[in-house]
Design a protein around this nucleic acid. Structure first.
Lengths: 326, 326
DNA sequence: CAATTTTATTAAAACGGTTTACAAATTTTA
DNA sequence: TAAAATTTGTAAACCGTTTTAATAAAATTG
């Protein structure tokens, strides 16, 4: 009564063998209708639930994907997670989510845990660093999304990502079109996407025939602790009338600083779109990532790799949508 | 080479028995230092990782907790999840997160899945409805947080929750203190917390000697689809100069409507605090929940129940902090 | 109705670990 | 040095499920 019922208990109670119970419950055709009904009835009455650990060990499949995200508090990643859950769910897979808080140690731990739990494949938004993923993952298929391992590390994995260069170039060009003449940038120092976004910024200036100004690019690789100071430096000292902000978390600090500085005519742009930007007193130009499509693509590709381990790795680029809110 | 190494492979390569490998890797004291080192070296070289499925089936413990949240896009729940992950991690437990999108069907599915994966205990923020949790859970310990099952369903589980009545009463009183004379409410129709918050609203009016106005309370139980219309009804037709908003998602709609209606003197209050409220042109009075403490308490209590299944269920109320931003 | 084919069921062998009972080797004690 | 105690290693049992191969039962055929 107190112990969880096993397949053995069901078999005994229904007066059949364990094998028959297993077949009856897994929609196998090789079982008489009457038998199946009786088994189902008994299993239901006993509150039997198959132990997926035992099952997983036997069939060497868990129908579970692991997903590693660097920051569960970041809207972008929670939205992405939700879409991936959705896409995976439709394909009959469950998703085991783990958050690394941008820590390489936690990432390694999460990865190990997932492998020990025998996930069929893993989706990684990397925390950066020089991790040798191939060594950790062994034969388990994986795919990278948004955040890639550094380019100097060769990985045999798919990569799904938005075209950061193109999108950033668009945003900065839009700021110029809206009247900005001197556009600054505040950007993260480390991540993969940050590097690309800096390139996009430089390209936009180049396209408009504006020379790069080293006095402005000092903030192009900040460490997130001195964002407010950088904001002041660019907007007051350097008299920038346009500003591109590299990501979500930096944007928060910039906005905080802007409530102090009275600069109604500043042209502001940032990468990740947020619902609440609509409520701010100042319009912000942003890139809205095709999150649904991103999630669907990631799952599709990963499942394709599960089906065919020989499938050649590939980099897939999607386009972001630019939101102007003029 | 291509197959994942098992404990058998390690044993063979190290020239010892499987049991010795198991002991050596699980810090059992009963193994010679030299042997342990050799085993560790070999295991490492082979990239061996114990199969936690096999282990879980034998020891009948997975050191994993399940967590069910109704909306992964809601900041409040992602923050709560993060704290729970943290607290559980410190106690040596991992957390399997599943999102139900406020759907009872998905909730039941998630619950079943977790039980099949043999989680040691489950944390539930309920999607509402008349689910008979005890029947589904069987002997697996569980605890409810924030969202409770309806009061008419008896559950033998702990409940950890913020005092919604008190906090809402505070917020509404604060709106009155800030000069509002006629305070409306827009609230969800269904959830457990919504019911409590309505009570808090009514209490505040009662405490201030203001009679309840049925023309205002029409919006007290909305279905989230006509929030913008209700907002107009209360603020224009009913001429409310104060408004309490029941939750996060409703607040979003209200703010959207407020960008159209020009009402600079409206006193606005809502339940869940958001970081970006700081950037809005209008101050909002909110309740900030003690999320860290909430998460810690939930984990502590659940683990206590794991250790002692006889522990009596209990309801724990924590106080929210009121943020005024005058 | 016997022979054959088809369909249902079962017993036993996996799966990959942990644990137990026990034997062997080593050290301590008498 | 023999006996006892301790340390270390081995072999077998076990966890709950699926699957294989063998068997029993039922349905079809000649």
């Amino acid at each position: 009564m107190s112990e969880k019922p096993t397949i053995k208990d069901v078999a005994k109670a229904a007066g059949v063998s364990e094998a028959t119970v297993s077949r009856a419950l897994s929609h196998s055709p090789r079982v008489k209708r009457a038998t199946r009904q009786k088994v189902q009835e008994v299993a239901n009455r006993l509150g039997y639930r198959p132990n997926s650990l035992a099952r997983g060990i036997r069939v060497k499949q868990t129908h579970t994907l692991g997903m590693i995200i660097p920051d569960i508090l970041n809207d972008y990643f929670t939205q992405l997670t939700r879409e991936i859950e959705d896409a995976a769910g439709h394909a009959g897979y469950d998703v085991l989510i783990m958050n690394t808080d941008e820590s390489l140690v936690k990432e390694a731990h999460a990865l190990n845990l997932m492998l020990e739990k025998q996930v069929d494949g893993v989706i990684i938004a990397s925390a950066g660093g020089q991790t040798d993923y191939a060594r950790i993952l062994g034969t388990t298929p994986a795919i990278f999304v948004d955040r890639m391992p550094p380019a100097n590390i060769k990985t045999p994995y798919d990569r799904v990502i938005v075209d950061n260069v193109k999108a950033t170039c668009h945003i900065v060009s839009q700021l110029l079109a809206q009247g900005a003449t001197r556009v600054g940038i505040i950007n993260s120092a480390v991540s993969f996407t940050a590097t690309e976004r800096l390139a996009g910024y430089q390209q936009a200036l180049h396209d408009s025939g504006i020379a790069l100004d080293s006095a402005i690019e000092v903030a192009a690789r900040t460490d997130n602790s001195n964002v407010q100071q950088m904001t002041r430096q660019l907007l007051i000292n350097q008299k920038c009338d346009g500003l591109f902000v590299g990501d979500n978390t930096i944007m928060e600090e910039v906005l905080r600083k802007l409530t102090e500085l009275n600069l109604p005519h500043l042209q502001l742009g940032g990468f990740d779109d947020q619902m609440w930007f609509d409520f701010l007193p100042r319009p912000i130009v942003t890139a809205r990532q095709p999150i649904k499509q991103l999630g669907q693509t990631v799952v599709d590709r990963l499942l394709a790799h599960l089906a065919d381990p020989q499938l050649a790795p590939q980099e897939i680029r999607l386009d972001a949508q630019i939101i102007t809110r003029q």
